[in-house]
Write a protein that binds this DNA or RNA. Sequence first.
DNA 1: GTGAAAGCGCTAACAA
DNA 2: TTGTTAGCGCTTTCAC
Lengths: 341, 341
Amino acid sequence: LDNKIVDVARRAGVSPATVSRVLNDSSLVTEKTKRKVLQIIEEMDYHPHAAAKQLRSQRTRTIGVIVPDINVAYFAEIIKGIENMAYARKYKVIICDSDNKPEKEKEYLGLLPNRAVDAMILVTPYLADESIFEYTDKGHIVGIIGRSVHNSAIPICKTDNVKFSRLAVEHLIGQGHRQIAYMGGYADSLDSYERLEGYMAAMKAHQIPFLPSLMDNGDFDETGGYEAMLRLTDKQIPFTAIYVANDEMALGVYKACKEQGIRIPEDLAVVGVDNNRITKYLSPPLSTVEQPKYAMGALMAEKLIDIMNDNEFSVNREFTIDSELIIRDSSEYRRDREPNG
Amino acid sequence: LDNKIVDVARRAGVSPATVSRVLNDSSLVTEKTKRKVLQIIEEMDYHPHAAAKQLRSQRTRTIGVIVPDINVAYFAEIIKGIENMAYARKYKVIICDSDNKPEKEKEYLGLLPNRAVDAMILVTPYLADESIFEYTDKGHIVGIIGRSVHNSAIPICKTDNVKFSRLAVEHLIGQGHRQIAYMGGYADSLDSYERLEGYMAAMKAHQIPFLPSLMDNGDFDETGGYEAMLRLTDKQIPFTAIYVANDEMALGVYKACKEQGIRIPEDLAVVGVDNNRITKYLSPPLSTVEQPKYAMGALMAEKLIDIMNDNEFSVNREFTIDSELIIRDSSEYRRDREPNG
DNA sequence: GTGAAAGCGCTAACAA
DNA sequence: TTGTTAGCGCTTTCAC
């Protein structure tokens, strides 16, 4: 029914091979034949069959992206960065929303051995390092965004958790706070751990004793943050500031504070991480650490595409992007400030 | 290098056809052979080659989704609905973020004739009806979410713009408002038009004269909403309430009000549309119309998959889902209300 | 610079 | 119930 490459070839009076060369702009075709073929292609409204091309060339020009929840702004922005770079390099992006279900992530990884994708980008905290190595060991191309992994061969893109966490906590200390709580994500997440490290470094540098009872984990989501905040306040150990390992959990902290009549920032200063779009609309606007989400997505997509095309010879496969502390009203109480940031 | 179906066949002592049958669980295989083959597949860690399968079967089990911006919560939630249904039916989803660029949307539509996708879901206000018909006329399967199109053959999923807009405006009238402004999206969008229709119906039903000068368009985004709001207030024609055709523009309205010292809801009641996640965190929380975004995505994906598998015989291809007015503080000023909704 | 021919890995029609 | 066989539509040697 549809036109194939032989039909175009016949009409143009050339061989299928030549049409193929034109299509993939090989340098070995005369300008004249090329023009002719292009014209026939246009006339016949010919479209190459993707699957045939993929089967023959053994590449799909498709990248998969696994995220826990596309609805969370942090992941959506990363995907956007990936998509834009992919589009510029004529790659497609298959989106794999794991719905926070590890089984679903494992199944989606299967796209690699099925050769439905040429590479996979993981933006998920769930998959164990070993599950990832299973694939990289077989030569599959995998990139990781926003989390650390103990394997220097895998390209990974992240920010400096320790560094920005220390800055965030030192900002709170600079505001006069001494009782500062820390809320992490999953207990076993390397990100959580590194952010805690930064927190402790700041405390230590200012000779503030570290209180384990002022620490809790909120699973990186709103509900978890809410519940962790309730546990923290239940303890009756006073604290005047809290450093929360991501903005989603900070939403839960806001909710808990509202319910308990704790005023932000008068009674409690709050600093989050991610600079989700939502944070600047909160009341008060939330201080947070900008994560260059779009840039991380775009960079990782570019690196993987370069690797697949053998344009990537760099030894260093770990890319650390700078992140910036954004101070808003949630951590800085001033009467003279405008109503919103 | 990798195992193919013949390798499995050989090892299992059967023909490739039988292995294929097992893989696609055809009913014509003995339990015994099936078990045997499955075991060999497991042993050899065999994974079928997606492109070969696609080429032979002429289906990709992949759906494309075109959205203007995956970062906008409205679109992200729809995608999530599509992705979940697709996953349940063993389909993949290719995400096409057009970045609000019509050229990019046109190019992504090319995935259809390239047979890189079996169907395409459009969630974009940009593409002209004719551009869509170009593809449907050639037999390509296309579904549309959240906008109207003048062609009953194309499956489309939407909410009843006229109905919910009328409800929203009548809510404002019920609060005692008479000078009510309307902010639409693109001037030529059918959604904008239908929401205006609902607005006018409500006004007419309550014998409130319709003032064209209390209408403007804000292009469905925050900046557009901000600018449209400035134009409206510049006119010096008083209004005490505004019905805004989506939440993104309402963010712009909030910003303009803040700058001009207009208090919400005391000086101006605001109602938006979409119930983006962000709205309930605004100060004051924004009244809005819930759009069942996830449900629309899931429903459309299901319908298209049914159509592709000939399980869909229904004549009616327009699905209208109910939407619900959510009243929060931005349109209802009460001293006794809790700080946030 | 161009063409002929082989084959990528699978499925489906037909035969057994 | 199972096997044989012929392609799906393209790219890519290898000749010319």
